[in-house]
């Protein structure tokens, strides 16, 4: 098995490639050999019951969790490890952070910095990680706030916003780092039903702009309309992957069928 993919094929390479990914927490094996390819500019949603490993897999892509087996590549670059003379070495903190800048992540609980205003939340990392000037960062932040429909809320603290507004700020904050991929971990699961739409609208816009996205979600409607591919996970493995029309419209695997019959 080759670990380093040739860079000359980088343009045709899928943005994310996962091969036989394993991850255990103690004795509990959560990922049991995940294989997946996420083409550049595509939107892939991960479906599955809770505990199926979809969130864990997402967190492995930006090294929030460290994988125990298999390989993940982003744009042909091995995630979390580097290979020297046929041996794997753990990445240093600096190397991991450098890699993380390429992916943006949106969490179920928003996780906006509670002690900072909306604007401060967005400009913090661009200034201190990317080394942008404050002025540049603010200009970009205002553009992004405009884009998520919250231009007038820059001075608010997260506590003063609704869940939907907080999540849209969180998306703007992730976009401010100019990521190549966006990871969404159940972005609408903590929202009141009437607020789900505004977040999905922003995500739909983002998908239309050509961003590569991996979305863990329970919103089957969103998966069907917006996603290019759907992967169904069960018990730490991908049991079915394909176009939404096929996976959602005509599921082949028994697990997928029973899951969809419950949520549709």
């Amino acid at each position: 098995m080759t670990n380093e993919l040739s860079p000359q094929y980088a343009n045709e390479l899928p943005m994310v490639v996962a091969k036989n990914v394993h991850k255990s927490f103690g004795h509990n094996e959560v990922l049991k050999g995940i294989d997946m390819e996420v083409p550049r500019g595509s939107v892939v949603s991960l479906l599955g019951a809770s505990g199926s490993g979809k969130s864990t897999f997402l967190r492995c892509i930006n090294s929030l969790e460290k994988i125990d087996g298999g390989r993940i590549w982003i744009d042909g670059e091995l995630v979390g490890y580097k290979e020297k003379n046929g041996k794997l070495h753990d990445m240093t903190e600096a190397e991991i952070t450098k890699q993380r800048i390429r992916t943006g992540m949106v969490f179920q609980q928003f996780n906006l910095f509670a002690h900072m205003t909306v604007l401060e939340n967005i400009i913090e990392a661009p200034i201190n990680v990317l080394g942008r000037t404050r002025k540049e960062a603010i200009t970009r932040a205002r553009e992004l706030l405009e884009r998520v429909g919250l231009a007038s809320h820059h001075g608010h603290y997260p506590m003063q916003l609704s869940g939907g507004q907080q999540q849209r700020v969180a998306i703007a904050r992730a976009l401010a780092m100019d990521p190549e991929i966006m990871l969404f971990d159940e972005p609408t699961s903590a929202l009141d039903p009437e607020l789900v739409g505004e977040v999905l609208d922003v995500m739909r816009g983002l998908a239309d702009s050509g961003m590569t996205m991996i979305v863990v979600t329970h919103e089957i409607g969103f998966a069907r309309e917006v996603c290019d591919q759907v992967a169904f996970l069960h018990d730490g493995q991908v049991v079915e992957q394909g176009k939404p029309v096929d996976v959602i419209g005509n599921p082949q695997h028994e697990r997928t069928q029973s899951f969809l019959s419950k949520v549709l």
Partner: peptide, 23 residues
């Protein structure tokens, strides 16, 4: 401090020291 705050900061590419002092 909520763990999610630290994870969000890490996901934005902040180094440990930065996360400690700023977040």
């Amino acid at each position: 401090v909520n763990r999610g705050q630290i994870e969000a900061a890490a996901a934005l590419g902040m180094r440990q020291r930065h996360v400690t002092w700023r977040i």
